[in-house]
Design a protein around this nucleic acid. Structure first.
Length: 894
RNA sequence: GGGCGAAUAGCUCAGCUGGGAGAGCAUCGGCCUUACAAGCCGAGGGUCACAGGUUCAAGCCCUGUUUCGCCCACCA
């Protein structure tokens, strides 16, 4: 790139290429300085509010965040420009396990663990980490241009939100919707915590299926059971078979002698057992398997835990005590083999549950946990969705939502970690009373003892995020924010947390606010790489948003995300597309640069001319009509969450109508001495550019703000300008029809030129044969325009005439475009093309004739459709005639 | 096993209540034409996965099949 490519040249005030880095930084600071992101809270205005899906405080901006926040910003900026009271609440999530892990890792590098510090110091340490590093993702959101009301940034662990958490917990407890119970949970032996079902990921894993002989207690034989986890047999308290399984009926009275431990265990009969699987006998370990736990409940079996919280075998495992669970597995297998009780071992692929945070294999185990009874809460959420008080977009999610909500189980909300909201429950050391209270109790209300100990568990992170839509607005106080902005307007999030988060917000919102938390839910797709693979560090296919911002600019990146955001399930992100939209931004920049050159000396008041379109020349009326249509499309697409259409409609208009046709068309006027023509061109140019900038500001805030500031006149910020509205006076079907003909003729001339390999700068002669008087007048009036755009030095326009044999020919509507081209025509090539054309027309004509001859069609199709077919028929016949004439002419030349 | 989704140009994808198949990129040809070569002009390219059905009319609705993807449950 040489110097003149990037620098301002004498003629223009603006650089030739858009310099995004400097512009973005400058405008974001300016917006913050002017506090334009702050929520307006005026009476009598419509309200629009969004709460951000709070990213983990440990998070680093990934492309999913980028998409999510671009779409939110798009809507927020749109509504702010509409003049709504608009609030976008930002914030972060304390992300219990994730954050604790980060700090524990930090400690490990100092050869410490959290127990060395103790609970209080550890938590201090986490807060310190948050002070230092917790702002990372917030700053990255700012690079994206997010127009959140940063003065209202919240954190799920801050004081107000913690208060809300406590209030909710206490109330639910008092209502009997929170209980503590012994239950089988997914236990992560590394994180030392219970995990919710949906925090466990099931990976297909190659393992082994061990078939073990369990001798009858009377020595009369054995049954074979199979397991992938032989170490759990130490905790077996029964063997289960199907109630109608004839093979095992006699064992009821005998029992089983459990190998290695020597205990005698019963045989129970349970419908859960599938007779066809293996031998139809199932070992039952109620303390270490979810299904076995259920069987145990039904048959009142002992729950024998044989492992501790670290996944190490405990005393109940007898001689195996002290072994890690996997070491124990080996040992057990070896011992069984030695005893001749190992029937066989098969290679076996099965789904193994792993901790979603650390991928350690989870161990199902029983423990005391806290639960929310979700059934009554879930019913309210389902009702709200059924009644249309909450709408889901895309609507394919309804079904999935209902199915999931039907099968929902109680929610385990306790986690055995330190970082989080500590459960506000105390047990009296004297009388055992359980106290759950808003304020920390000093004495036991039951016996007066002061020996109270608080629960050590903290709450699941999703518990606090479930309250996010109202806790961030000041609940439990009845704030003005709550009154104005709750329910929020729309929730924009990724579908993978529909159940983790969205459903729980519905439940909590409906229960505590007696109102839905949001009216619409837009679930966007997951961003994958261009081959449809999940982006992951190990695959090395991650696209880093900050990288993209630096290479292509934030606006180009945002435009790409918007253009990809169709209502589907996956987006295949391709970096080349970002580069393509960078070119688009640059195109807009240059169009503005061109406009600015002509507008800088213009009186800003001339734009009033665009208010009276009837007075204007055709091209102006046309572009105003087109921009009007574009406004309609963009608004419609925004209101229906069809984000890709927002991008597409503006792209199409700016590049292919405004730049390709309008700017070229008005050049003559802009350079003209005729003041009226010049003023009209300047006025409409400025007006349309203004509309376009405002229309696209929500997607590409930086470049639009920059260009806006360069336009003539006193200007405030575009981000607070009113969003474009359609104007009846701009809609002009006639102008569109007329321009269509003119553009068609020009394209026809250009095609003829190119195909005859006429040099682009050479002037040609041309004749237009136009039988229609109105059209002929139109063509005559705009002959200079046609000549300029198609480089024609002599344009003859006649009602009819003879087409010379050696002429280029095109048919545009009923206008014949004729260019005499002695010796320049590629006869063979043209004939080939015409033959193809003829074949196509013949086929099409046959289809239509058949259709019009079909009585059923004539009787049933709407009149408009029939009329259209008739028009089509005559048009095709006309084209066919002309095609045949052309073929005739060319044959003479051969 | 249950549920959901996808299959349209070489690639990535739009195509909404059924009525003449679209875009961007890529390809080919030509061009520094007074905003932009990060550009302009023009061209080629599709049996809408397959098979049936409904309809005057199907990329779109229905049934089945194939391939791929996701989610839930889970097989001891």
């Amino acid at each position: 790139m040489n110097e003149t490519d990037t620098n301002t040249t004498e003629k223009y005030d603006l650089p030739k290429a858009y310099q995004f880095a400097e512009v973005e930084q400058r405008w974001y600071s300016r917006w913050l300085e002017e506090r334009t992101f702050r929520a307006r809270m005026e009476d009598g205005r419509p309200c629009f509010s969004i709460v951000i899906p709070p990213p983990n405080v440990t998070g680093v901006l990934h492309i999913g965040h980028a998409l999510n926040n671009t779409l939110q910003d798009l809507l927020v900026r749109y509504h702010r420009m509409q003049g709504d009271n608009t609030l976008w609440v930002p914030g972060t999530d304390h992300a219990g396990i994730a954050t604790q892990n980060v700090v524990e890792r930090q400690l490990a590098s100092e050869n410490l663990n959290r127990h060395d510090l103790g609970r209080e110091q550890f938590i201090e340490r986490v807060w310190a980490w948050r002070e230092e590093k917790g702002g990372t993702i917030i700053n990255q959101l700012k690079r994206m241009g997010a127009s959140c009301d940063w003065e209202r940034e919240r954190f799920t662990m801050d004081e107000g939100l913690s208060q809300a958490v406590r209030e909710v917990f206490v109330r639910l407890y008092q209502e009997g919707l929170i209980y503590k119970g012994d239950y089988i949970v997914n236990w992560c032996p590394r994180c030392h915590t219970a995990l919710a079902d949906d925090e466990v990921e099931h990976d297909p894993t190659d393992g082994k299926l061990y078939h073990i002989r369990y001798p009858h207690a009377d020595g009369s034989g054995y049954v074979v059971v199979a397991t992938t986890r032989p170490e759990t047999m130490l905790g077996d308290t029964a063997v289960a078979v199907h109630p109608e399984d004839e093979r095992y009926q006699h064992l009821a009275a005998i029992g089983i002698s459990l190998p290695l431990s020597g205990r005698t265990i019963p045989v129970v009969f349970d419908h859960h057992v599938q007779r066809e699987f293996g031998t139809g006998a199932l070992k039952v370990t109620p303390a270490h398997d979810r299904d076995d736990y259920e069987i145990g409940l039904r048959h009142n079996l002992e729950r024998l835990k044989v492992m501790d919280d670290h996944g190490v075998m405990n005393e109940a495992a007898g001689t195996y005590a002290g072994l890690d669970r996997f070491a124990c597995r080996k040992q057990v297998v070896q011992d069984l083999e030695a005893l001749g009780l190992l029937e066989k071992v098969e290679e076996y692929q099965h789904a193994v549950g792993k901790c979603y945070r650390c991928t350690t294999v989870v161990e199902p185990t029983t423990s005391k946990q806290w639960f929310v009874s979700v059934r009554p809460l879930a019913d309210k959420a389902v009702a709200a969705v059924q009644e249309g008080r909450i709408n889901l977009y895309p609507n394919t999610w309804y079904r999935t939502f209902y199915v999931w909500m039907e099968n929902i189980r109680d929610w385990c909300i306790s986690r055995q970690i330190w970082w989080g909201h500590r459960i506000p429950a105390w047990t009296c050391g004297a009388c055992g009373e359980m106290i759950v209270a808003l304020a920390d109790p000093d004495i036991c209300p039951s016996c007066g003892s002061t020996s109270l100990s608080q629960e050590t568990d903290v709450l699941d992170t999703w518990f606090s995020s479930a309250l996010w839509p109202f806790s961030t607005l000041g609940w439990p106080e009845n704030t003005r924010e709550l009154q104005l902005f709750y329910p929020t307007s729309v929730l924009i999030t990724s579908f993978d947390i529909l159940f983790f988060w969205v459903a729980r917000m519905m439940m909590m919102g409906l229960h505590f606010m007696d109102e839905v938390p949001f009216r619409d839910v837009y679930l966007h797709a997951l961003v994958r790489d261009k081959h449809g693979k999940k982006m992951s560090k190990s695959t090395g296919n991650v696209i880093d948003p900050l990288d993209m911002i630096e290479q292509y600019g934030t606006d180009a990146f945002r435009f790409t995300l918007t253009a990809f955001a169709a209502q589907g399930r996956e987006i295949r992100m391709d970096e080349e597309r970002i580069d393509g939209y960078r070119r688009f931004i640059n195109k807009l920049w240059n169009a503005a640069r061109f406009a600015q050159m002509h507008l800088k000396e213009a009186d800003p008041a001339i734009t009033a001319l665009a208010d009276e379109p009837a007075e204007l020349a055709l091209a102006h009326r046309w572009i105003l009509s087109r921009v009007n249509t574009t406004i309609l499309q963009v608004r419609g697409a925004l209101d229906s969450y069809n984000f890709n259409e927002v991008a597409q409609a503006s792209y199409q208009f700016v590049w292919h109508e405004f730049c390709d046709w309008y700017l070229e068309w008005i050049k003559a006027d802009l350079f003209s001495d005729d003041a009226t023509a010049r003023d009209q061109a300047r006025a409409v140019l400025c007006t349309v550019l203004e509309q376009v900038l405002k229309l696209m500001h929500p997607i590409i805030p930086f470049v639009t703000e920059e260009i806006w500031s360069q336009l003539p006149g006193e200007r405030g910020l575009i981000m607070v300008e009113p969003f474009p509205q359609t104007r009846a006076a701009w809609a002009d079907q006639e102008a569109e029809r007329e321009m269509d003909l003119l553009m068609g003729v020009i394209s026809g001339l250009r095609t003829i030129r190119t195909e005859a390999e006429v040099h682009p700068s050479a002037q040609i002669e041309a004749t237009l044969l136009c039988p229609d008087g109105d059209k002929r007048r139109l063509l005559t009036d705009f002959a200079p325009g046609i000549q300029a755009m198609a480089r024609v030095k002599n344009l003859v326009i006649e009602a009819e005439g003879r087409v010379p044999d050696d002429a280029g020919h095109a048919l545009v509507q009923d206008v014949e475009v004729v260019v005499p081209l002695k010796g320049l025509i590629d006869v063979a090539g043209e004939l080939e093309k015409l033959a193809r054309e003829q074949a196509k027309l013949d086929k099409e004509l046959a289809r239509i004739v058949a259709k019009l001859g079909n009585e059923q069609f004539m009787a049933n199709a709407p009149a408009a459709v029939v009329a259209k077919e008739r028009d089509k028929e005559s048009e095709i016949r006309a084209r066919l005639t002309k095609t045949l004439e052309s073929i005739e002419r060319l044959r003479k030349l051969r």
